[in-house]
Simulated assay, not measured.
Amino acid sequence: MIVVHDGLNSPRGHDGTGDAGENRSPFPDKYLMRNTRILRASNAQIREVPMEVLEAAQREMVNIVSLDDNLLREVPKDLNLLAEHLTQLTLNLNQISYIPTNISQYSKLWVLNLSGNLLCDLPMELGGLQLLRELDISHNRFQRLPTCIYELKCLESLSAHDNRIKGIDASEKGLGGLRELHNLNLSNNDIQVVPPVLGNMRKLENLGLWGNPFRQPRHQILSMGTQAVLSYLRTRIPI
């Protein structure tokens, strides 16, 4: 757990000790960012990130940004200052309703957490994140999986539970084309039909389908685990 210290111009010591002043900042100081390469400010009622904070993070070569559980309505405008080094971006539990097209600049991202926002779509440019391994878009307002996701060929984990998704594209142009996908969570959506070809995704180790209104596979099969579900689905693929 990273402890959040005072701001960039804090009179406190390099170790973050000392009395709290009137200008207490929710952001870590440059020394903490230098030592951890992390810009973290969680549950701090933040509505924006000052440019000077991001400029300092750029100088300290920060590669992890975690701004979860705040009041952000958009991705911080100057976050692209960190695009060259950023590998993990956590923006869950905010009020973000859109992702800008310049998300493609963050080409080194491995982990992107957008859960618990107000999203209903993602830009096609997000498909340019060819190193992305983990994507979490759960607890949003998606009625379908954005097609840009099918371009993420290195994706290993996709969490899209607790949305309003109505269907699954498991074809080669959809989820079936994600050869490295190990974890897929589509629980608590509005999925009416589970396509049998989903059973061909043999690398799946964890498949979440609970809480959807489909009739097949039955709960008895779901309770037997992922491999049992995939085997059942393969038996239903038309010959």
Rank of each mutant, 00 (worst) to 15 (best):
G21L: 06
G21P: 00
G21Y: 04
E22Q: 12
E22R: 08
E22C: 06
E22S: 12
E22M: 04
N23Q: 03
R24A: 13
S25Y: 04
S25I: 04
S25H: 06
P26S: 02
P26T: 09
P26I: 04
F27I: 00
P28N: 10
P28L: 02
P28Y: 04
D29G: 13
D29K: 00
K30W: 11
Y31S: 00
L32I: 12
L32H: 14
L32F: 11
M33E: 02
M33D: 01
M33W: 07
R34F: 11
N35S: 14
T36R: 03
R37D: 01
R37C: 02
R37V: 03
R37P: 00
I38L: 05
I38Q: 12
L39K: 06
L39I: 05
R40I: 08
R40L: 09
A41R: 04
A41C: 11
A41D: 09
S42L: 11
S42I: 14
N43E: 13
N43K: 09
N43Y: 10
A44W: 01
Q45F: 09
I46F: 04
I46T: 03
I46A: 08
I46L: 15
R47Y: 08
R47E: 13
E48M: 08
E48Q: 13
V49I: 14
V49D: 06
P50Q: 06
P50H: 09
M51D: 13
V53F: 07
V53G: 07
L54R: 04
L54K: 03
E55V: 14
E55Y: 10
E55D: 13
A56Y: 08
A57D: 07
A57R: 12
A57K: 11
A57P: 02
Q58T: 11
Q58S: 14
E60G: 03
E60R: 06
M61C: 13
M61K: 14
M61S: 15
V62R: 02
V62H: 02
V62P: 00
V62I: 10
N63R: 09
N63Q: 05
N63C: 10
I64Y: 01
I64D: 00
V65G: 02
V65I: 12
V65E: 03
